[in-house]
Design a protein around this nucleic acid. Sequence first.
DNA 1: CACGACTCCTGCTGGC
DNA 2: TGCCAGCAGGAGTCGT
Length: 277
Amino acid sequence: MPELPEVEVCRRGLAPELEGAVIEGVKIRAPKLRHEIPRELVELLSGCRIVAVRRRAKYLLIDCERAGVQGSLIIHLGMSGNLRFVPHDKLPEKHDHFELVLADHVLRLADPRRFGVVLWQPGPPEAAALHPLLATQGIEPLSADFTVDWIFSAISKRAGPIKPTLMDSHLVVGIGNIYASESLFRAGISPLRAANRISRARYEILVPAIRETLSDAIAAGGSSIRDYVHSDGGAGCFQIQAGVYDRAGLPCLRCGGVIRQIRQAGRSTYYCVGCQH
DNA sequence: CACGACTCCTGCTGGC
DNA sequence: TGCCAGCAGGAGTCGT
């Protein structure tokens, strides 16, 4: 579920509540997510003050410190994870796996499919980038580093179709299955076209198309289908009109042609044959 | 190195 | 109505 915009919206919702707060306790109910949640988090985090809430790729980084302890809590929501604040007396539900107990309320992580991650990287905030899961992550698409020059050279060796290439987080982070299809639709590029056979002129359209697709989604509060819940507990919804995603068989909003659904690298891709070449 | 298949897990939907 | 196959927003690992 959560792609970059959803994680960023989540971060923005969490930051004002978390920054400066003190963690009074930690509960781990299901230690086995994609990786085992470290048991020592209970001891480590208790009494910590939260310094900052950051995002790198689709990971949330919660910087914590107290006397003798400094490090970052690394959280990934996987396909079905969400974080929400609940009152202290709210009973946990089936898939509530992890929580931070604060003075005013509890931050609870639910993740039915358990593809999420809760890990710890010790050290100052800048050390979080050294964690093995983060060290191999690619460029942030909303940063100044994401340029036509960069993508054109980075992708020149990629012979595979552009859509799964855009989803390779070792190149560019944060573009998941929805926004890969949406960005290509916006740019008028076929998801089937080989990455290294797209002209520079077309990357000059694709780069801003990706930026705008992600920015618009963030501005709209993050789009989602069913699992995503804003950190304040409100249900997320598809506030941006999807151009192609999940619209198989429906008319293209631009040309009226029929939206097609295909499979690439095991994932559904949606595109308009009329608009995308 | 690049790429696709496979894998982890649960829940929902659609077809019979 | 009930059952079950297939599919779902991620991404690391492995084999080719």
